[in-house]
Design a protein around this nucleic acid. Structure first.
Lengths: 211, 211
DNA sequence: ATCTAATTTCTAACGTTGATAGCCTTCTGG
DNA sequence: CCAGAAGGCTATCAACGTTAGAAATTAGAT
């Protein structure tokens, strides 16, 4: 088998580039429409027809840009992970003493200000996560949290006993708190849930340090 | 307004009692059918027609016993809380030293052996939880966990700083771990997730004790 | 035993959902 | 200017949750 050069892509013309750009814009508009409907009236109200209506198109237009409704939702999920990653990266820049709380607050704030995305990210089943085809955006969010946790441990002159495990645990804790609070399952309301979460975060993190 | 005696229920006849019993049996069979379909093919496969088919009835039969599909699902959710409560109560009888881990393991085991119920309990939105009309079954599960946590604290010669808050935190943590593990989001698989959870449970609980 | 009323169950249908096929129109590149 | 590709629409599909109304069964009283 001889080592080949690149398949020689025939240099896209100017108008081809424009059309591809417009195509991506249309995809983005469809995603945004779905997201807005979900934010206004919940995910049950997100139908193909309503998405198309919002852009003054007819229903089948969606299939020119996505292979199915589900694939649109999965892509929205990735948008969610990307935005979450951004927020986490901002929080990771706070000074070390408050960095841990800042990360948790960033997660919390994202969940409640973009709750429609948060729901899409966590309510979706059928998306492979453990496997090699885990969405890159999800991996990035995970990596951002890991880096932050490691830096916090380092700033305390310690290190994580199991970096990957620590991220899983912290992530699970944050998600559990948000999940219960969002479902209205915490007596005392959302603010109380947030306080409880922040109070317990510290010992939970300490437990992840090498003994 | 005069104080009245009871509305004088006209003593149900024998056959009336039998019919009421049969009615409840039919409800139970419908619930069971829905649950089995969910266990086999996931909640997306649970349709009114398939539920009825499984009992060799036609679709509209459901509305003789439930006001809607959603109300059937809500009732199934309560069944889930009731079963979880049972399991937790069993675990609460383990000797104090391992009681905490036993409670967590009972929760975990319930979630993974009755995952269809677990999903119904947690994937359902539109059920009021914070309010006064919180399902009794959910309250019972909550109470069982609180009692256990208090007894564990007591056995250690301490007490919970905030009993209700401690239950919320522990519950959130358990749910977060299960939720991530069930979605296949924990690197290393389900067994690793369980180990991580059990390892962190101890310090998480300790943090709930009065300082 | 018989009649009436209530209950159980079914058939038929409605509106909506996600999705596909096929046509018409517009735009692209030569 | 013309062939072909791409964008968008109309019409339609099967399946969904749900309701109306008729048929069949059963109940309790005469």
């Amino acid at each position: 088998m001889t080592t080949r050069a690149k398949p020689a892509q025939p240099e896209p013309s100017a108008s081809q580039k424009r059309r591809e750009r417009e195509r991506q814009q249309m995809r983005a508009r469809l995603l945004e429409a779905a997201r807005n409907i979900a934010a206004e009236d919940g995910w049950n109200a997100v139908t193909i027809r309503r998405i198309a209506d919002k852009l003054e198109y007819t229903a089948p237009i969606l299939y020119q840009y996505f292979s199915s409704k589900e694939s649109l939702l999965i892509e929205l999920m990735m948008v969610g992970f990307a935005e979450l990653t951004d927020q986490l990266k901002v929080a990771a820049q706070t000074p070390a003493p408050e960095r841990l709380a800042a990360m948790a607050e960033a997660y919390w704030e994202f969940a409640f200000t973009s709750s429609e995305l948060y729901q899409a990210m966590n309510g979706m089943d059928g998306v492979p996560f453990g496997t090699a085809e885990t969405p890159l955006e999800a991996k990035a969010a995970f990596r951002t949290l890991r880096t932050a946790l490691q830096s916090i441990a380092e700033a305390r002159g310690a290190e994580l006993a199991d970096a990957t495990g620590a991220v899983d645990i912290v992530w699970a804790f944050l998600h559990g708190c948000v999940s219960l609070a969002m479902a209205g399952r915490v007596a005392g309301g959302v603010e109380r849930a947030k306080t409880l979460m922040l109070n317990t975060l510290e010992p939970l993190f300490t437990a992840q340090l090498r003994s």
